[in-house]
Simulated assay, not measured.
Amino acid sequence: MSWNLLLWLLALCALLALVVQLVCFLRADGDLTLLWAEWQGRRPEWELTDMVVWVTGASSGIGEELAYQLSKLGVSLVLSARRVHELERVKRRCLENGNLKGKDILILPLDLTNRSSHEMATKAVLQEFGKIDILVNNGGVSQRSLCVDTSVDVYKELIEVNYLGTVSLTKCVLPHMIERKQGKIVTVTSLLGVVCAPLSAGYCASKHALQGFFNTLRIELATYPGIIVSNICPGPVQSNIVKNALTEEVTKTTGSDADQSHKMTVSRCVQLMLISMANDLKEVWIADQPFLLMAYLWQYMPTWAWWITNKLGKKRIENFKNGVDADSSYFKIWKTKYQ
């Protein structure tokens, strides 16, 4: 075989590999590191068993599904949110479908805005289970309104709940983890903590703040390698987060019941979260296309990202004003083309 032929074959193999990777990426629903961990990494059922996991925002959406999937792994669960009756419902389903007994699940009502209660809540968990292995900061609220129409009180509420409440609870749990020299702090930020989108200025600000805080905290804890700080950045998922999102005033939510079939299922999102937790990944992006692609563009090609975001942003605002899901049009187009 001549050298020229060998070089041509190598070039052809490289081209085929590139095409395969491109096709895989177009169908990806998580960043490449996360999907590699899903394929070759440690399994949640190996790594998370027998841990005490405290989940905030556990009454619905990602937090609720996280409780269900964790209940099958043999962990001890602490479920927190403001709505006690919803937490009771989640607990009953965990007991029905999981591997836990009643003593393994603690319902602990918690209001993230009531920061003075966070120390007492932490002591209650430690008294019940003796340790906190994983804190999942999942509680939060979203927003759908144009900046020019939105009261500053809405932005204040978003910062109080999403940012300050999460920071406060983390600071209460952190001394315990430092004393043990181990633990995981898992914070559900958002893909909007990495990119930006119209109609969510206050929400984006609060999630960018979380990214900055926990990235800095991770550096400060470098002398405690047993304490893992992870940021989970989901894109749109099928939940009530849009329905409960704030609008122009604090007292007003969207109440939207728009079709969400084009969004990622919450079960898949949580499955990837557990992979991240089992493999101690520092930051993961979980999203269907085209949002995953947008995150990569914002990271590596910001000029292109700004141009595309401006184009999509106009359609997002148009959808919102017409009373349909803000992301429905380009999600449906993508699903039709590539799935």
Rank of each mutant, 00 (worst) to 15 (best):
I228W: 11
C204E: 05
C24R: 02
G61D: 08
I308L: 14
A295H: 06
L7K: 01
L217F: 06
H85L: 08
V136A: 01
T150Q: 02
I178C: 11
K131Y: 10
Y338A: 09
V19L: 13
K181G: 03
L210H: 04
M51K: 10
H262F: 15
K314Q: 13
V136M: 00
G41W: 13
Y68F: 14
L34P: 05
L221C: 09
V188E: 04
S151E: 15
M273A: 07
G226M: 06
K321D: 15
V152K: 00
T336G: 07
S59P: 02
A287D: 09
C147T: 14
L5H: 04
L9G: 02
M264K: 02
W298S: 10
P234W: 08
N322T: 09
L6Q: 06
T170W: 05
I241H: 00
G235L: 02
T170R: 00
C172F: 07
L312M: 12
L293I: 15
L293H: 07
C233R: 01
Y155A: 01
D111K: 00
V324Q: 03
V266P: 01
T56Y: 10
A58R: 00
E179D: 13
E179V: 11
V136G: 00
L34F: 09
V141D: 03
R316S: 12
D50F: 11
K156Q: 12
W334F: 10
H85I: 14
I134T: 05
F320M: 06
L73P: 03
A245K: 01
Y330W: 13
C269K: 01
I159N: 01
V161L: 01
S116W: 10
V90G: 03
E47S: 10
S71T: 04
W39L: 14
